[in-house]
Write a protein that binds this DNA or RNA. Structure first.
Lengths: 180, 180
DNA sequence: ATCCCATATGTACGAGCGTACACAGCGGAC
DNA sequence: GTCCGCTGTGTACGCTCGTACATATGGGAT
C-alpha cells in the first residue's frame, strides 16, 4: 500500500478540490471526484473531511489567502502616491482580464456562503481582509463601501457577461472615496 | 388519469420550483423534487422543461418580475420629492428585514448565472430593469453604479451574516449619486 | 369521421452519490 | 517488546438522480 502518515495528503486533497471546482463548479464537487483528482482513495477524502462543507471551507480559505497575497504583491494599495479608486479599478481589470476560471472559482466558493452558514465566517474574513488593506488609505466606512462596490461590479461582469469597463469602475469608486 | 391539456400545468411547475429552491436551495432542485412539490408526475416536469437550466430560467424570470412589481408598487423611486439614496436604502431594508427566505431565493437563482450561461440574459434583465427605473432620477452611469452597490451591499449582508445597516447604506449610495 | 400530433404519464435503467464499516499498518507510550 | 490509537484503505449498501421510452389521450385539422 501507499506510504502512511503522508503529511501532504490533506493539502493534496484541498488543491484537488480547488481544481475540481474550477473545472466543473461546486455542482461537480464530491468526495469521489476530489479523490480521483487528487489520486487518493475515496476513504482518504472522507477521513480528512467528514463533510463537503468542511472541504469547501478549507478550499475557500486557501483561495482567499491566494487573493490576499496577489493584492499585497501588487502593492499599489500601500503606495500613498496612487489613487485608491484607480488602483482598485486596475486590480479588478487584472483579475477579470484573463480567462474566467480563476475569478469564477473564487466567487463560486465565496457565494456558496449564501446557503452554507459554515462558509460565512470565511466569506466575512475575505471582506475584512480587503477592507483592512483599504483602511490604511481611507476611513473604515469608506473601505467597507468600496469592498461592496468592488463585489457588485465584479458580479455584474460575471453574471451578465458584460465586458469590464475600467473607466466606469474607476469613476464609481472615486465617488465613494470622496468623503461626505 | 388526470385531465389532459392542463393549461396551468407549466405554471404550477414553475411555482413549485420556486418553493423548492426557497426551501432547499438549488442543490435540492431536481425534476423529481419539483414534480413532488407540484403534485405532478415525473414525466410532466421533464416534458415541459427538458433541462433544469430551462426550469431555472423560467423561475428566475418569474422571481425578477415579482421583485420589479414590488419595487414599482412601493413607488418611491418615481416620486421626485424623495432622495434616491434614501429610497434605495429603505427598499433594501424592507427586502432584507423579514426572513432570509425570499431574498435568499432570488439571489441564489441570480447568482447561479455565474456558472450557467443560460441564466445570464435573465440576470442581465434584472440589472437593466432596476437601472431603468433609476434612470428616471439619475443619469445611466450613476444608475448602473447604484445597482452594483445595491448588489454588493445585499451580498455582504447575506454572505457574512452581518446585520443590515441602513444608515451606512444610505451614506454609501448618497456618495455615488453625487455627480462627479 | 378520421387522422395526427402535442400533451401527458408510468416505469425502468445505469450512473453517481454520501455513508458506514471492517480492516491494515505505523509510531509513540510504557 | 507490547499495546493502543491515529491515519489510511477498500468495499458494499441504499438512495436519488437524469434520461429514455412505450404508451395513452384529447383536440384541432382535414
Amino acid at each position: 500500500m501507499a506510504r502512511r502518515h503522508d503529511p501532504e495528503r490533506r493539502q493534496r486533497i484541498i488543491d484537488a478540490a480547488i481544481r475540481v471546482v474550477g473545472r466543473g463548479g461546486i455542482a461537480g464537487l464530491s468526495h469521489r471526484s476530489v479523490a480521483a483528482e487528487a489520486d487518493v482513495p475515496l476513504g482518504s477524502t472522507t477521513y480528512h473531511f467528514k463533510t463537503l462543507d468542511e472541504l469547501m471551507v478549507a478550499a475557500l480559505r486557501q483561495a482567499n489567502e491566494g487573493f490576499a497575497k496577489a493584492v499585497a504583491a501588487r502593492g499599489g494599495l500601500e503606495d500613498p502616491r496612487t489613487d485608491v479608486a484607480t488602483e482598485l479599478a486596475a486590480l479588478m481589470g487584472e483579475w477579470l482580464a484573463g480567462d474566467r476560471t480563476g475569478v469564477e472559482l473564487e466567487y463560486e466558493l465565496y457565494l456558496a456562503a449564501l446557503r452554507r452558514p459554515a462558509l460565512r465566517p470565511v466569506a466575512a474574513e475575505w471582506c475584512e481582509d480587503l477592507a483592512g488593506q483599504l483602511s490604511r488609505r481611507t476611513d473604515p466606512v469608506t473601505a467597507r463601501a468600496l469592498v461592496a462596490l468592488v463585489d457588485g461590479i465584479c458580479l455584474q461582469v460575471l453574471l451578465t457577461g458584460t465586458p469590464y469597463d475600467e473607466t466606469y469602475a474607476r469613476e464609481a469608486l472615486r465617488r465613494v472615496t470622496a468623503a461626505g
